[in-house]
């Protein structure tokens, strides 16, 4: 069987998506049999992008010119470009203050006027290149990663979950943290597929898999506020992974150095 040539790259993020891949300890031997991780700087010495790739999994958000260059390079060389994790798909938790100029935020942390490394607003990969597939989650589920690789060998892309976290949660026969305990659970808005990981342990969903296919934000807001949560609190928690919740909506800017 042909080994798929794969690139695993990290832009700006916590490396949690790459780490989750490395955390598939039981499956690593099989993974290595079917995929050649030709470019994987976090785990291997090679740093040159050589030849064509069957797939490039790119973690992290776009926030530096260097990252943009790497991303474009990977796009050019890869048949499939995959946004690997919440940061890559939507900008992730670090995009929550994209309403404020970067310089202003940077001043709070570094003091000076210039943003170190020339960093700009965290943006999803799709703001700069064509993305063929999203692996969602912060971090993604191991099962989703493995399903992608199984599909890669079989020549298909996985079918993304079109359910809600609530549906997974109810199918596991959990009690509802929102309706029965009055907690701020975002499962009613969140794309399923994690088997309701958090609510099943009595922790409200924070929406890390991103927004579900068809959502009703107005009604969800009404329920949350009926449970006593202030608009600020809702938008803070909701804003971690849902841009829809942020006070000031801002279109992602495409940054083009040329």
């Amino acid at each position: 069987m042909k080994r798929e040539r794969v690139a695993i790259a990290g832009l700006t993020g916590c490396s949690g998506c790459q780490l989750t891949l490395l955390d598939c300890e039981d499956e690593l031997p099989l993974l290595l049999k079917n995929a050649d991780f030709d470019y994987f700087p976090m785990a291997s010495s090679g740093i040159a992008l050589k030849g064509e790739y069957d797939a490039a999994l790119v973690e992290g958000c776009l926030s530096t010119q260097e990252g943009l260059k790497l991303l474009r390079n990977l796009r050019e060389k890869s048949r499939l470009l995959v946004a690997f994790g919440a940061c890559a798909v939507s900008g992730g938790v670090t995009a929550i203050r994209n309403d404020v100029p970067r310089e202003e935020l940077s001043r709070i942390v570094y003091g000076g006027d210039a943003v170190p490394g020339g960093g700009f607003e965290p943006a999803p990969l799709a703001s700069a290149v064509k993305v063929d597939f999203d692996i969602t989650g912060c971090p993604p589920e191991k099962a989703d990663i493995l399903e992608f690789f199984a599909g890669l060998s079989a020549g298909v892309l996985p079918i993304p979950a079109r359910t809600f976290v609530c549906a997974d949660c109810r199918a596991r026969e959990n009690i509802c943290l929102l309706a029965e305990k009055g907690e701020l659970c975002l499962g009613v808005l969140t794309r399923g597929g994690c088997n309701a990981r958090c609510p099943s342990m009595n922790v409200p969903c924070e929406g890390c898999r991103g927004v579900a296919e068809e959502t009703n934000f107005a009604e969800a807001m009404a329920i949350f506020s009926a449970n006593g949560f202030s608009a600020d609190r809702i938008s803070e928690k909701g804003g971690r992974f849902f841009r829809e919740f942020l006070h000031e909506k801002k279109e992602y800017q495409k940054t083009d150095p040329d």
Binding site: C14, S63, L105, S106, V115, P116, R233, E236
Partner: peptide, 28 residues
């Protein structure tokens, strides 16, 4: 040369509820 995410600035002005869930995203 890791890109700056400015976590300390992101947290300023947010409720204490947000702090632990945000900061764990500093590094996996």
């Amino acid at each position: 040369s890791e890109g700056v995410r400015l976590f300390e600035a992101l947290l300023a002005g947010r409720s204490f509820h947000e702090v632990p869930d945000m900061v764990c995203r500093i590094c996996s």
